[in-house]
Design a protein around this nucleic acid. Structure first.
Lengths: 242, 242
DNA sequence: CGGAACATTGATAGAGCTCAAGGAACGTGG
DNA sequence: CCACGTTCCTTGAGCTCTATCAATGTTCCG
């Protein structure tokens, strides 16, 4: 069964208007299919020139870079609703890799349609730029955390951030959300070693601040977690007023 | 004297065509003036909702975030030709601050014109998205370095990257380029302490690999520097083929 | 039941931080 | 032109945090 465009996750961007008839028709032509992949499947590889773009509909994934020394930096976690491959679409080549961590369902777009989108759908192209700016914003937040926080602060920040992201995607309830990643993934995302990540997580568990077992993350003491993570302010959710 | 649009740095993006008459006329209307600021002047503040966008014409600057604990993460260095404020333009609010480090000359654009650009100039709006994707790409490279490299590797990588960037901007010759930043800036960019940054720089100087004095950076042994920085491959410079 | 993948724990070493002080460069005012 | 303050750079000492190494537990699946 193919999800209809009128309920596409990308559309959550439309805060000031819904798709008009003509636009909707365009988007229906734009999409080119749906893709199911298993856990662990690589979706895009660094250096590849994929002819396809994706929107994650279900499941979770991982964006990462492998460095010349073999180390892996996880750039972020892919949630349902995320757009994948904009870089390749716009720059001609992926600068990082993406792989599925759970089974995923993806909406597939044809890259060659991207230019016609810019030509004919200013609203959509504006949304794309907005998306790119958002990703840039999130990356800079991660960079600031990895660059400036201690291990305990980073882990707390990372878990909190993940939870908030899950909330926005409607995946969280009662202070818990799915967390299908490995400790190694979190370590690679925060620039910490696996062992130290584990020990830090242990301390958070002992202190009854979080629990993370069996692929489920519980936030037990959000206030405490926020104070450790140095997080006060909410993330911006306001659209531009143009 | 006002720089003419036909020699605007933004135009270096045009690899497959130059501005046609109509487009050029549009861009001339788009720009709204030129701005001179002194060294140390804050240009945009995190949280501000600036009605202006800028293109750096001359001078250098710094993008950074201040964390709740007072630490500063430098996101990157601003070179001539860089676009400043796209985030605010598209998201409605800056998520980081920008300040001049040398005296700067900036081309000023009016944010309210951005939407008409999307509506009327698909090429320009495509370029903007490309720009945002490029910035995302650079940020992810920095993140990977900060997250995964040792201090010596990071410093080498940072200097090399800076030099390459200067080369692209035409600011480098004979293995040297201007480097008007402080060691503290580099330290904050790479997530290192000032003291350790200094000691690591000293070792690079002793080994005759780089020299950095009086605001000028010399790359003395580029091969060695590249090998320490784990850099082999060139950065991508290919435009999308759409 | 056996093996693979992942999580946990302890011991040890070293990279990088902090503190503290001194030196160099540079602009400013007398 | 020199004294002086400020800013930035440099260096040493000591200590902490985090990485690494090496086992042992645990879970899950074939």
């Amino acid at each position: 069964m193919v999800t209809d465009c009128s309920e596409c996750p990308l559309r959550k961007l439309d805060t000031f208007e819904t798709l008009k008839g003509e636009e909707l028709a365009f988007m229906r032509r734009f999409k080119s299919g749906e893709l199911n992949i298993g856990a662990g499947t690589p979706l895009l590889m660094e250096g590849s020139n994929s002819p396809q773009l994706y929107t994650a509909l279900k499941g979770m994934g991982l964006r990462y870079k492998i460095l010349p020394n073999g180390n892996r930096q996880v750039l972020n976690f892919v949630f349902p609703g995320d757009f994948i491959g904009l870089q390749a679409g716009v720059m001609g080549e992926m600068q990082h890799s993406v792989e599925a961590v759970t089974p995923m369902v993806l909406r597939v777009f044809d890259r060659s349609d991207l230019w016609s989108l810019f030509k004919n759908q200013p609203h959509r192209s504006y949304d794309l730029t907005w998306l790119a700016a958002m990703e840039e914003h999130f990356l800079s937040e991660i960079l600031a955390s990895v660059g400036q926080l201690s291990a305990m602060e980073r882990i707390s920040w990372g878990l909190l951030r993940f939870y908030k992201r899950a909330q926005e995607s409607g995946l969280a309830r009662d202070g818990q959300c799915p967390m299908p990643f490995k400790q190694q993934d979190l370590a690679d995302a925060l620039g910490l070693s696996l062992v130290h990540t584990n020990k830090t997580l242990m301390r958070l568990k002992e202190r009854q601040i979080v629990s993370w077992r069996g692929g489920v993350l519980h936030i037990l003491d959000r206030e405490e977690l926020e104070s450790i993570a140095l997080e006060q302010k909410e993330r911006p959710s306001v659209r531009a007023l143009i």
